[in-house]
Design a protein around this nucleic acid. Structure first.
Length: 273
DNA sequence: GCCACTGTTAGCAT
DNA sequence: CATGCTAACAGTGG
């Protein structure tokens, strides 16, 4: 569920509530969420101040003093929300951050239990070292770099957009919406794409993701930001979830196909191969 | 009750 | 480097 626009919206909703606050500790009712470290390491969180909230692709980062970061991946159904201290947790809440001098805790909840949390310390907790192999931020990469990146790739456009080592943060919904906006077929090959089409793709990546962030992401079912607010970009979806319904551009029915194991929505007319 | 489906990604074989 | 399949898991809808 949470792709770049949703994670960015969550980041923004957490920022005013966390930055400058000191951690009083944490609870870990679901050990499975903790990746690459032992639960007792979490003890060092107590007393650290929150310096800032970051995002890289679909990863959310809580940057702390002492060159320490908490890095979350929400996978399909991860969510954050605030709850009154001491209030019993529901069965899907796997991690709780206690804030000093406050009445509310930050809770990490994930129905499907795919979401993960890492505690990263030292020099590795900053910058590029944190996510080796992750592609550039789609809203930051320029046309020249984008062109160079895509020239090195083969395969189909849909799979390429989903590939996090190409660009970081695009998932199934936005891949489909981007390709419709660019009027490119999901099965079109990345190799040999004309400069005009590369530019259209680059522009569409920026347009779709930019607007989606402005609308607070897409709420299909579960997604909420940390204040419980839904996103609104689903109201502007042109193809995702619209199989058999008429294309807004040409009125032909939107088609759904499975591509690389992912459901893919497109207009066969507007996105001709 | 069963089966298919869901927004992610890692790991594996080919 | 690319593709396809599986698995992790829980809930929803037919």
């Amino acid at each position: 569920m949470p792709e770049l626009p949703e994670v960015e919206t969550i980041r923004r909703s957490l920022e005013p509530r966390l930055v400058g606050r000191r951690l009083a500790g944490c609870r870990l009712p679901g050990r499975h969420v903790l990746q690459d470290c032992r639960p007792d390491k979490l003890r060092k969180l107590r007393g650290l101040r929150v310096l800032g909230l970051g995002r890289r692709g679909k990863y959310l980062i809580i940057a702390l003093e002492d060159k320490t970061s908490l890095v979350f991946h929400l996978k399909m159904t991860g969510q954050f929300f605030f709850g009154p201290t001491g209030r019993p947790l529901d069965r899907h809440t796997h991690f709780v951050l206690r804030l000093a001098g406050g009445r509310e805790d930050l809770r990490f909840r994930d129905v499907r239990k795919f979401g993960r949390l890492r505690l990263v310390e030292g020099e590795g907790s900053e910058g590029a070292a944190l996510f080796p192999g992750l592609g550039p931020e789609p809203l930051e990469v320029g046309l020249e770099d984008f062109t160079r990146l895509i020239r090195r790739r083969a395969g189909r456009l849909k799979s390429l957009l989903l590939n996090q080592s190409f660009l970081a943060g695009i998932g199934n919904i936005y891949a489909d919406e981007i390709l419709f906006a660019a009027r490119l077929h999901p099965r079109a090959s990345a190799a040999g794409l004309s400069p005009a089409k590369v530019r259209r793709l680059w522009l569409s990546v920026r347009r779709i993701l930019g607007r989606a962030v402005a609308r607070g992401g897409s709420t299909i079912r579960d997604y909420r930001d940390a204040e419980g607010r839904v996103g609104l970009f689903q109201l502007e979806h042109k193809v995702y979830g619209r199989a058999t319904q008429p294309c807004y551009r040409c009125r032909r029915p939107i088609r759904r196909e499975v591509l690389g194991g992912r459901s893919t929505h497109f207009c066969p007319r507007c996105q001709a191969l």
